[in-house]
Design a protein around this nucleic acid. Structure first.
Lengths: 269, 269
DNA sequence: TTGTATGCGTTATCAA
DNA sequence: TTGATAACGCATACAA
């Protein structure tokens, strides 16, 4: 009464292998070959203690049925989703989408999927995003904080739970975790030195808003380069603009993501 | 021998409720209250046949333990992940990231997560992306095809499997599925009419590359508007540029996604 | 070499 | 009103 007609609606009629609805499972392959599920699992898993012919038959059948392991089931077993959660304030901002592009690219290389959320610069939404991603049991989080965020308890909580966390660009120094930031000072320094070495004499600096530390770090780099070459700093060559130019090549995100993965090697495999 | 010391490492020592590593589970709540797992499940699930006090205690404990249902386990049971897969050629292109932003926003509203892939304009990568997302058992796919893609068997296969599929912008007419496209003709027509109604007399048209049907549709809209107002078309006012201006407000994606969800209402709940 | 049993976290069914 | 059990798909420890 237990092994009779336990048809789950996923097998075809007499002798057919076709899986009518949905994806093929180990069970479907097992049935069509009259072997056990574990045999199929081992054959596909590359186990050594398995008959060569059995393996061949299983592999072939798996191909015919377009079998692909159910990541969801694997995740439940292993407690690992191979998915990273990324939270950015806004995806229409080039800086964030370019970085996302890089994160996604590197993640894919390492066999990770990427789940994306937007906080819309709202602290509340940032909290909700984290909850959602944690409910999906992502293996790690990459976050650029919302402008509203000034309380960091939610990040501290992640840290306590042992969730791998990486902050980028909009970071928070109070949290003990990997932070990824553009080296504004070094960038400005190198750019200025480059111009000097090209023979430029009067080099202007278009600065961002004065109140941002980013602007100050860039200005300092510019200033340091001039000093290094004994060129006097001339105030009239510095212009403070309202907007911060944060455009940068699409590869920037890839580099950042590279840093992520080298910093957090337990995410890599 | 069966119910002795089955400590899975997730419970704390004598009397403590703390879940040491990872997230709290129903089992953790059940243990700390000396009730069964199913009671806890029902209490949190809002079932009616449950003692009011029991529910109160369970809910409170769940809060204290920061319990959040394991989406992975739920997905395995229900065969539904509440996740959409999105494949775009490239995330650094504003058009795609702006649309992604809209898709994600609407998806989040409806309780869906979004998993993102980039094909890098490669047919092979597009295939891999689909496999990856299908392995993760996404509930549906939103795809903008790669430039390389000229064979549509992979889309046909999705259709056969009954996977909800939406194509946007880079669509393919051979597939029987929801397609989302910008109405280039109507946009150009309305824009031109607007200028005419503002009193403009000599209206120029900056067209994209002549070989693209998009360019032709826009030009036709421009042309039709002039004709509607009996304004002669003057060739010297038409300039063919090399680049296609596809910048558009971030809300475009939201509108598109709205179309997705209204077209595919079985995704909505 | 293969099969059986178990568990991952959750919920629905059935029994008490 | 509550508890025990089975099932989702997979992989592994154990038995044969």
């Amino acid at each position: 009464m237990k092994d009779m007609q336990q048809d789950d609606g996923n097998s075809a009629g007499a002798g057919g292998f076709e899986v009518k609805r949905g994806q093929a499972r180990l069970k479907d392959i097992a049935r069509s070959l009259n072997v056990s599920i574990s045999t199929v699992s081992r054959a596909l898993g590359g186990s050594h203690d398995i008959n060569a012919e059995t393996r061949k038959a299983v592999v072939e059948m798996a191909g015919r049925m377009a079998y692909a392991p159910n990541q969801v089931a694997q995740s439940l077993r292993t407690n690992k989703t191979n998915t990273l959660g990324i939270i950015v304030p806004d995806l229409t901002t080039y800086f964030f989408s370019a970085n996302l592009s890089g994160f996604q690219e590197v993640a894919a290389e390492k066999g990770y999927n990427v789940m994306i959320c937007q906080s819309n610069e709202s602290y509340e939404e940032e909290l909700r995003n984290i909850s959602t991603l944690m409910a999906s049991r992502v293996d790690g989080l990459i976050i650029s904080l919302s402008k509203q965020t000034s309380n960091y308890d939610h990040l501290q909580a992640l840290y306590k739970k042992g969730i791998p966390l990486v902050l980028f660009d909009r970071v928070c120094d109070d949290i003990e975790t990997t932070r990824i930031m553009v080296d504004e000072h070094d960038g400005a320094l190198k750019a200025t030195e480059h111009l000097i070495e090209m023979g430029c004499k009067r080099i202007a600096h278009l600065s961002g808003p004065e109140n941002l530390s980013i602007s100050r770090r860039r200005l300092q780099g510019y200033s340091d380069a001039l000093q290094r070459y004994d060129i006097p700093l001339r105030e009239e060559l510095i212009r403070h603009t309202q907007h911060l130019n944060r455009q940068r090549p699409g590869s920037a995100g890839a580099e950042l993501a590279g840093a992520v993965f080298s910093a957090r090697c337990h995410l890599c495999h």
